[in-house]
Design a protein around this nucleic acid. Structure first.
Lengths: 168, 168
DNA sequence: AATGAAACTGTCGGGTT
DNA sequence: AACCCGACAGTTTCATT
């Protein structure tokens, strides 16, 4: 799936990832296009589900969510998958749930207010699920970068100069 | 910091996290408030940096970003922190970078097209940074949940009934 | 915080290349 | 097929109460 997006489509996505409430007029001006043409492009991107929606970025700290953690979870049998996924969907504190290859089966990103909430989540919610063998929690001390902006211009590694020793 | 947000402010944040391009009129209707009052509330939330901005949610798959991974990175000395953080900021493939407690020093969330890009990122970019002792990469097989919506209504664990055995 | 007026934006139809 | 233009409805914004 490289859904034949032309340069204009890509620019639309880039601009809207950075400023999701930009008016179609503003967007049109930056694309050197008319507002209706721009609106039509956006509409088609939404229709094709390439543009999935828009969301406000809110400061977690200001909401009292002072704790972030990653939890690696191991299931004793895939039979218990549905129970876990169901639980994950229900709990707002769980922001992400990824099925992973390697140590453990699932990786969860969670946010809560303090250790008390985390204790509840790990000890009461997750460990009481059927089939959960063990969890391993990693606390986040601080966050240096956290963006939802996707890279649209990954430089091709193959076009780069071959690796040299550092001291020629 | 529990920035004395009243119920209306919280509802604004909740609604805008779900639908970031909602008009102030629509928002006002759901709050049973006038559009100007609503706009003023939003303006204050932005001013206080509780509302940090708005962004479009774009499908990574459609952009050809088929690979997601978490990389745990260990530094041999905090002296090399600045170099790492600098690198992290420059590379769009790195979406998140957290300083963590536990195994390793930093946890990175990265997105790229395929293993070739990941190889480049790990072997050329990260491992060539000064002070990087080792990295450990976890590949994401699939994602069951991924949201930026923050929980505003975490039920207080202390108010719950004490834990019972499952079979009374 | 609500109202009403002015400016702007989104949207629809029709026409162009 | 994609785009531009012009017109109208809806939205934002400001002044006022």
């Amino acid at each position: 799936m490289q859904s034949d997006l032309d340069a204009v489509d890509k620019k639309i996505l880039t601009l809207l990832m950075a400023q999701g409430r930009m008016t179609w007029s503003d967007l049109a001006a930056r694309l050197q296009l008319s507002p209706p043409a721009t609106a039509e492009r956006v509409r088609r991107l939404e229709e094709r589900a390439i543009l999935r929606g828009y969301s406000a970025q809110v400061s977690a700290e200001h909401l009292g969510l002072h704790l972030m953690a990653f939890i690696t979870l191991t299931l004793d049998h895939p039979r218990h998958r549905a129970d876990l996924l169901n639980c994950v969907q229900q709990h707002d504190a769980i922001q992400e749930c990824h099925h992973i290859a390697g140590d453990g089966d699932y990786l969860l990103k969670v946010r809560c207010r303090h250790t008390r909430d985390l204790e509840h989540l790990v000890s009461e919610v997750l460990k009481s699920l059927p089939g959960v063998l063990r969890t391993q929690t990693t606390i986040v001390l601080s966050t240096a970068k956290e963006t939802t902006t996707l890279p649209l211009d990954l430089h091709d590694p193959s076009t780069e100069a071959p690796t040299q020793t550092e001291h020629p």
